[in-house]
Computed example of a mutant assay.
Amino acid sequence: MSNNSLLQSSIPGMKAHQGKVRDVYEFGDKLLFVATDRISAFDWVLPTGIPDKGRVLTQMSKVWFDRLDVRNHLISMDMGDLDLPDGVDVESLDGRSMVVLKTEVFPVECVVRGYLSGSGWKEYQETGRVCGIQLPSGMKESDKLAEPIFTPATKETSGHDINISFEQMCEIIPAETAKKLRDLSFQVYQSGADYAAKEGIIIADTKFEFGHLDGEIILIDEVLTPDSSRFWPVDQYEPGKSQPSFDKQFVRDHLVACGWDRNSEPPALPDDIVAKTRAKYVEAYETLAKSEFPWK
């Protein structure tokens, strides 16, 4: 297959603030979020993109922003709402771009876990806790928690975010604000998880980002996507092991199997891994949006 992924966006005369996946451009009190097709694994951005991955993330975030009863930063999906310079390749940005409010971002990732997996499972095995929260003994990998837990993390510019306790979060931002972010995170997670479960997807955990504008807390960035969450198929869920998922599992498995040392530049991905990964992202979108992905 030909890989027509977008690894780097470009707007003439403008410099983007670049994250692992998103390119962000400033337009006064608005921002243009462009989700590229970059994919990362083991803290490396890979040289091969996943075609339309950025469109999946953007369109899925739009589905959730429309569903969730909480203020968010989305203004529109129409780049015509911005005064774009001449020469912009609008077609390459179509479907992967959001015009959003510019907010002051809280410097903490708001993570909610409904199941014991990932770094939470690793920490539990070592200490019986997750981010300072004591859990029952004898739990297995991927077990459902009695109730979701809030496990914040620092926002690191490179490498992994660092898990912290809620008390540590209260040292970074005011305690009253931290409580509001925690409550809002639980609300959004539960609403999303309940809907997804009816459609056959378990949202095992997720991370949210929030900003504030004019004294109001606003949900920002992407929300409840395969990049910011663990999505598991309900009909294959089996505690006691890692679960099949709707994300970059094929990519991770390939990188482990091919012998890459994780300390040097990562190798390119073969076509079949790219195709399978793209299909998983598209399947997740179509399942939750209950409509066909427009960029088939």
Rank of each mutant, 00 (worst) to 15 (best):
T151I: 05
W121A: 05
T58D: 03
V105Y: 09
S92V: 14
P152W: 00
C110F: 03
I133Q: 06
R96M: 00
Y115R: 09
Y115N: 06
M77E: 15
L74A: 00
Y115W: 11
S119V: 09
V108F: 02
P136W: 00
P148I: 04
S165Q: 08
L145D: 08
V108N: 01
M60Y: 06
V90T: 14
D69E: 15
A146Y: 12
D83C: 11
F106S: 01
E126R: 12
G114N: 07
E147F: 14
D143S: 14
E126A: 14
V90M: 14
S137G: 11
Q125Y: 10
Y115G: 08
L82M: 08
D86K: 12
D81S: 06
D89P: 00
Q125H: 09
M77R: 08
Q134N: 12
Y124Q: 02
M98H: 03
M169T: 06
E126N: 11
S158E: 15
S119L: 09
K144A: 15
S61E: 00
W121M: 06
F106E: 01
K122Q: 14
V99A: 01
G159N: 08
E141Q: 15
I75R: 01
V108A: 03
T58A: 07
G87N: 10
N163H: 13
V108Y: 02
R96H: 01
K155L: 06
V105P: 09
M60P: 00
V108C: 04
E91Y: 11
L145V: 08
K122M: 12
F65Y: 07
R71S: 12
G87T: 11
I172A: 10
G87K: 11
I149S: 02
E104W: 10
P148M: 06
D78K: 06
P136K: 02
E156D: 10
G114Y: 05
L68G: 02
K155F: 06
V105S: 12
Q59I: 06
D66V: 04
S137V: 12
M79N: 07
V63P: 04
F166V: 09
F65L: 04
M79L: 07
T151F: 01
M139Q: 07
T157C: 12
G128T: 05
T177M: 12
